[in-house]
Amino acid sequence: MTAFIERWGTTIIEATLATFQMVTISLFFSILIGLPLGVLLVISRTNGKRYIWLYRVLNIVINTIRSVPFIILLFALLPFTRAIVGTSMGVRGVIVPLVIFTAPYLARLMESSLLEVDQGVIEAYQAMGIKPLHIIWHVMIREAKSSIILGITIAVIGLIGATAMAGLVGAGGLGDVAYRFGHVRYQPEVMYVTIVILIILIQGIQTLGNVLSQKAKKD
C-alpha cells in the first residue's frame, strides 16, 4: 500500500488535478456558449414563424457537431485548435475540442430545461411590459434553474468521460494514466485505483448536482 502510494501517488494526484483543470476550464466556456445557445434555440422555436429559420440553422449545426464522436472531433479539429490557441497539444490544446464537443450538448440540455418553463408566466411578464432580456434572465433561466443545474451535472459527467481521451494529445488526466500505465504497461492496480477515483468523483458530482437542483426548486 505504502509502496503503491510512493510509486503512483504523485502521478495520480497530478492526473486528478489535470482532469479537474480540463473539466473546469472547458465547463466554464461551454456554459458561456451553451446557455445562450440554449436560450436562442428556445426563443427561435417558440416565437412563431418569425425566427424559425434561425432554429433550423442552429439545429443543423448542433446536430452536425454532435454526430462526431469526441475522439474523432479531437483530431479533426487539430488545425482549428492550433489557429485559436496556438497549440494543439497539452491542456491548452484539448480545451478547444472539449468546449466544441460540450457546448452544443449543453445547449440541447438547456433547451429542454428552458422549454419546461410555463409559457404563461413568460406571457404574464410580456403583458407587464418587461424587457425581453429581463424576461430571459428573471423568468426563463430563473424558473428553469433547478433543471439547468441537473443538465450541467450531466454535461460535467460527459466532460469527464471526454477528458479520458485528452491523453492522446498529451494533456494528461485520469483517463490517460489509466490507459497508459494500467492498460499499455499492464499495471491493473493503477487502472483500478483511477476507476475508483472516477466512481467517487462522479457520485460526488451527481449528488452535489441533485442537492443544488433541489435547493433551486424552492417549493
Binding site: 410555463d118 404563461g120 404574464a124 403583458a127 407587464m128 423568468v139 430563473r142 424558473e143 433551486a216 417549493d219
Partner: peptide, 14 residues
Amino acid sequence: IGMIFQGFNLLKTL
C-alpha cells in the same frame, strides 16, 4: 394595463 390569467402565472421559485 394589468392582466390576470386562468393559470395565475406566478413564478414558482419566487
